[in-house]
């Protein structure tokens, strides 16, 4: 049974992203545990890819650093295995289709199941191509997390009806990265989703400040933050434990404020 619903069982969720292997396998394990301790409800682990076309420059660079450090899909599974010795926090992967395709869907999802990975987000696997792996993922109890974009319009309900785990609502046009303004009408997107499903919907892309997180969580079931955390890792390298913990704590508090 996927642990993803646990992330949303106690009110609004704060979801944190980091890239596996940046700055090292060991530190990624430490940072995931630090993120959990600071109050995050779910962690997205980025499996690095050579050409992350949905990412802005911050996460692109993290992918390059991780690959230079020698991070592989097997290395990411090792990270999960070590995290699972100490933690049962819901974990989902974020990666591109090619590394998963190359590993072999059966092999990949079997490992996910055995190690306790609850879901996977693949930006280059839209609704129309989901069949590629949906049966295999389902057989191994791994949720394929669907994305909904500001351009999705009439596609929102089609996607939401078949959604598993949670829905990843993309806040803005373009790629990941910190933004000063988010102008999309999240409230009406969520309303459209709510007409067809009760599955939680969390908002990501461009969120970095507690104010943004509070506003996005108020309109949905949670906020997803990636680039702002990866920036801390870029800045502090293998000494980012404290800055990450402090940041995640402030963001979690902001998300909780949205419940009132």
């Amino acid at each position: 049974m996927s642990k993803i619903k646990n992330a949303f069982s106690d009110g609004k969720a704060f979801i944190a992203f980091l890239t596996a292997g940046d700055p090292s396998l060991e530190k990624t394990v430490d940072y995931i545990l630090a993120i959990e301790e600071a109050g995050a409800d779910l962690v997205e682990i980025g499996i690095p890819f050579s050409d992350p076309t949905a990412e802005g420059i911050v996460i692109q660079d993290a992918n390059i650093r991780a690959l230079k450090e020698g991070m592989t899909v097997d290395g990411v599974f090792e990270i999960v295995s070590r995290v699972r010795e100490k933690s049962q926090i819901p974990l989902v992967f974020l990666t591109y289709l090619n590394p998963v395709f190359h590993y072999g869907y059966e092999n990949f999802f079997l490992k996910c199941e055995n190690l306790g990975v609850d879901g996977i987000i693949i930006p280059d696997l839209p609704y129309e191509e989901k069949e590629e792996m949906s049966m295999t993922a389902e057989a191994h109890h791994v949720d394929i997390i669907s994305m909904i974009a500001p351009t999705s319009r009439q596609r929102i309900q089609m996607i939401a009806e078949e959604a598993k785990g949670f829905l990843y609502v993309v806040s803005s046009m373009g790629v990941t990265g910190v933004r000063s303004n988010i102008e999309t009408d999240i409230t009406s997107m969520i309303a459209s989703i709510r007409e067809v499903t009760d599955i939680p919907a969390a908002v990501g892309f461009g969120i970095s400040t507690p104010e943004q997180a509070e506003r996005m969580a108020a309109a949905s079931d949670g906020a997803i933050v990636g680039s702002a955390i990866v920036k801390l890792i870029e800045k502090y390298g293998d000494r980012a434990d404290e800055p990450i913990a402090k940041y995640v704590k402030s963001m979690k508090e902001a998300v909780k404020r949205a419940e009132n």
């Binding site: 949905a54 289709l97 280059d124 839209p126 129309e128 994305m147 974009a149 351009t151 999705s152």
Partner: peptide, 18 residues
């Protein structure tokens, strides 16, 4: 859509699908 045998397809972000 857009298949040539098993090749082709539309492996692209949701933002571009419409």
């Amino acid at each position: 859509k857009g298949r040539y045998g098993e090749f082709g397809g539309q492996y692209i972000s949701e933002t571009l699908m419409n």
